[in-house]
């Protein structure tokens, strides 16, 4: 464990714009050296929360602490930020632009140049350095933006919909880079609508809806909270024989009879456990596979928000 278990603590943060309450007493912790998913539908307050973390705006109420200390303007050098709405100066040269933005993070000239050189080489971008940004393809621009966000070697890297608009090859490349950065000890806050990438990358999440935090915790914990005691069972035998074995505490939700192997989804009632189900089945039939049906993040999202998560960035 690092010296602080939570690198960032969000404590009762509220923010209003005129009559609109963007955030209502939001509290949760972001564990260090993990990938933390910030989820929620459009207008849930994700971007507002990210802007308070990056100190673009200040909360009306509540506070954010970084490594146990209140956020201070000196802390911006420890943060890297790739906003959802991102852009570059179109007429500026790639290298000049990257140097400018990285040096604004407080890096000395030679240090900024050193770091950028490494990144440009790693992502094979070296031959673009003298190009104007307007001559780069969209994918190249996104790579450049990613490099600019990570080149100051941040303690906390905030990625707002990082994959929107990326082609599959670059998406995979950036995913690998994100995992590599995480292994080097960077905490990553990852805001997205894309639930499959949450499953793939995130260790913990917080879900916002209408300015309020709905749930937070490790992905595992969140999922187990939303377990519905459903089990997927494959066995050899007839439906009749199967139903007779189950008894009153287990209910068949779905059944697909096969010539040899059949599939069933069974719901447990009154605190019945998976173990008991296995014992019941194996007492009369041959069990081929048994698995608890864990809800996907996608299902949980819909459950909590009553809205389909979108995979594209709109806002």
């Amino acid at each position: 464990m690092p010296e602080h278990q939570h690198i960032l603590s969000i404590d009762g943060v509220s923010k209003r714009f005129g009559n609109f309450e963007a955030l209502k007493h939001v509290s949760f912790n972001i564990p260090a050296e993990e990938i933390f998913g910030l989820l929620g539908p459009n207008g849930a307050g994700k971007t507002t929360l990210i802007r308070t973390i990056t100190q673009i705006t200040a909360p009306d109420e509540g506070a954010i602490t970084f490594k146990g200390k209140g956020l201070h303007s000196n802390h911006t050098q420890y943060f890297g930020y790739l906003p959802e709405e991102r852009g570059l100066y179109r007429k500026m040269k790639v290298w000049d632009q990257a140097m400018y933005l990285v040096r604004l993070k407080g890096l000395e000239k030679h240090e900024a140049a050193q770091r950028l050189k490494e990144w440009f080489e790693r992502l094979s971008m070296t031959e673009w350095v003298n190009k104007s940004v307007e001559d780069l393809s969209k994918g190249m621009q996104q790579k450049l933006q990613f490099v600019i966000a990570v080149a100051n070697d941040p303690k906390v890297l905030i990625l707002d919909e990082p994959f929107s608009g990326f082609d599959p090859v670059n998406t995979e490349l950036i995913k690998q880079e994100i995992l590599r950065i995480k292994d080097q000890g960077t905490t990553i806050i990852f805001s997205t609508h894309n639930m499959s990438s949450v499953e793939e990358l995130c260790d913990s999440i917080a879900l916002l809806n209408k300015g309020e935090k709905v749930i937070d915790g490790t992905v595992e914990d969140v999922k187990s909270t939303f377990r519905k005691s459903l089990y997927e069972v494959r066995f050899k035998g007839s439906k009749m024989a199967f139903a007779n074995l189950l008894g009153y505490r287990f209910e068949i939700i779905d059944f697909q009879e096969g010539s040899v192997v059949s599939n069933a989804v069974v719901k447990a009632h009154d605190g019945a456990t998976g173990n008991q189900l296995v014992q019941l089945i194996t007492s009369g039939l041959e069990l081929v596979s048994f698995q608890e049906k864990i809800p996907s993040m996608h299902d949980i999202f819909i459950d909590l928000v009553h809205e389909e998560p979108t995979t594209t960035a709109e806002e």
């Binding site: 673009i56 911006t76 943060f79 991102r86 852009g87 100066y89 600019i148």
Partner: peptide, 16 residues
């Protein structure tokens, strides 16, 4: 330019 480019948000995460 900075606003329509959307570079603004990156910059003001570093400077006021």
């Amino acid at each position: 330019e900075e606003k329509t480019n959307r570079i603004i948000e990156v910059i003001i995460s570093s400077v006021r």
